[in-house]
Amino acid sequence: MGVTCVSQMPVAEGKSVQQTVELLTRKLELLGAEKQGTFCVDCETYHTAASTMGSQGQAGKLMYVMHNSEYPLSCFALFENGPCLIADTNFDVLMVKLKGFFQNAKANKIETRGTRYQYCDFLVKVGTVTMGPSARGISVEVEYGPCVVASDCWNLLLEFLQSFLGSHNPGAPAVFGNRHDGVYGPADTMAQYMELFNKIRKQQQVPVAGIR
């Protein structure tokens, strides 16, 4: 895999989420990108169960268990700013067994679904982020396959993003700065999605017009 940048696209003024997504995909198709099926990234939140909290009174950490259709046999477990565990999909079953320690916050389940596009060596995924029944925002993921070092190709990625995002200018993802020369991996992508989802959860719910 190559270097990936996940960013949030603000909903265009006076448009619904769906309309903005259509606008984006039409721009991509005009650019010459080819449709290649769909994608899905989901995220479930787990609280540390009260019974296991130490007497020190520390606040429970949140753990996120995520799946990405790009890695259909894997399951990602992340702590905020913490390590990322990549496991087989059986991990979900394990989490059910561990409900004494980790409790699933079902209402917090959030996911993004959409279409996958290929343009030369770029892989673009435009998705609608939904939480429960409501559409909460738009995610744009761009992967550049040939490159493995994030800092090498950020300028190149930015130029590509600007070619179809228009005026919206995404900043460099935080994970790009973490490891200056390190090889970029799937865990870095999942961390970006986790950040994006956290940001969207904190936002106010968009008006009814945005519901899918």
């Binding site: 343009y119 030369c120 060596d121 190709c153 300028n155 190149l156 130029e159």
Partner: peptide, 18 residues
């Protein structure tokens, strides 16, 4: 390869290629 812009047009990408 991925860091140097074109010396002529100053851009990184042309038809999706650096």
């Amino acid at each position: 390869l991925f860091q140097a812009p074109c010396q002529r047009c100053g851009k990184f990408l042309q038809d999706g290629l650096p």
